[in-house]
Amino acid sequence: MIGLTDEYQKMFQVEQQLWWYRQLHERVAAVLTTQFGDRRDIRVLDAGCGTGGLLSYLRDRGYTNLTGVDGSADAVTFCHERGLNVSLLNLNDLPDQPETDLFDAVICNDVFCYIAPERLPILLQRLARRLRPGGVFVTNNNAFALFRGQHDLAVGSERRFVRADLEPLFPPAGLRLRQSTYWSLVLSIPILAVRLLQRLELALGRKSNAARSDVYLPSRWVNETLYRIAQMENRLLPRTPFGSSLFLTGERL
């Protein structure tokens, strides 16, 4: 999304309230708790941190050693407004540095869709090299081309993924795959309906440069209902076969 100032503005305004972000942040926090228990001093790197919603969420829950990087100057500016330790760095330029200055957890959410296919294995290797042995890697990505719609055009997303695209990349990067699941299965039906409608609008002549993203806050009761549905699914169905997002975790060997 580099250069899409309006999209970063929308993200900054809603990501601490919108059901989708809330559920994603809870999923990430659950991984950290499973791996590190009640420790709040672990070193966490959010690579491609956007406007800092996840880092803010973790800070509010007591995590004290948080670092972020993002390739968008707009995103970094918003992060600094939140008082976060974030630097400007395009992940395509992430150095293949020696294994020093290591982290306990590296998170890279909804970034892979902007990375060229031939560069993705390199990026994953370089992110994994920033983990201590036993450290945890977390990544969430948009899933299934079937869900492609105006949202993808609006945010500049190039790809959608299935498990077979990403799981084989973990072992060569030095990561043991621990979790791989799509989400949200229950809400995939209305999400798909909206995306198919968006594609119909494009087919009927809506200009692609007028495409709208899905980053907006619905009414309070709708937002809370969607959040509760996604939350309940995560509790009852920790692994599902379908959904608009793909959530994976790995452990540094």
Score class of each variant (00 low, 15 high):
L123R: 06
A210V: 07
F78P: 02
T77W: 02
N92A: 04
R252N: 05
R220N: 08
T67A: 07
I42C: 06
V194S: 11
P133L: 03
S157C: 14
L236R: 08
E167H: 12
N142K: 10
T181W: 03
S208T: 02
R220Y: 01
F147K: 00
G134T: 11
N141W: 09
Q23E: 07
N90R: 13
S180H: 00
W20R: 15
A73W: 07
C108A: 08
L91C: 08
A105V: 11
S244P: 06
T139E: 05
D101N: 09
E7G: 10
T5Q: 08
A203H: 02
S188W: 09
I191Y: 04
V86A: 03
F161T: 09
D70L: 00
N85F: 12
L146H: 15
G48E: 07
D93N: 11
D110W: 09
V28M: 11
G243K: 00
L32S: 01
L226D: 08
V14G: 11
R132K: 15
A75Q: 10
L84P: 15
C49A: 13
W19Y: 06
Q17D: 01
A73S: 12
T5G: 02
R176P: 01
G50M: 06
M11F: 06
G205D: 02
Q9T: 12
L187A: 10
L196R: 15
V155C: 01
D214C: 08
A75D: 06
L146Q: 14
A210T: 13
A230P: 11
V186I: 08
L187N: 07
R59E: 05
L94I: 12
L54I: 10
A203E: 00
R148I: 06
N142D: 14
F161H: 14
D6I: 04
Q16M: 11
A75V: 03
S244K: 02
Q179D: 07
Y63L: 06
S245I: 04
N140G: 15
W221P: 05
L202E: 09
C108P: 05
G250R: 02
R206I: 04
R199M: 00
R43E: 02
L169A: 10
T33G: 03
F144Q: 03
A116N: 14
L153T: 00
L24I: 03
D96I: 12
L58R: 02
C49M: 12
D93C: 02
I2M: 14
P172S: 12
G135R: 05
S208W: 08
A211V: 04
C108E: 05
F36V: 06
V222C: 14
L84Y: 00
V106T: 04
R126G: 07
P171E: 01
R178T: 07
Q150H: 12
D70M: 13
G62V: 13
L253H: 13
T139N: 15
E118A: 14
F112N: 09
F242D: 00
V44A: 05
F161L: 14
L88M: 05
I122P: 05
Q17I: 12
R126Y: 13
E26W: 01
R199A: 00
E81R: 00
F144V: 02
L236D: 07
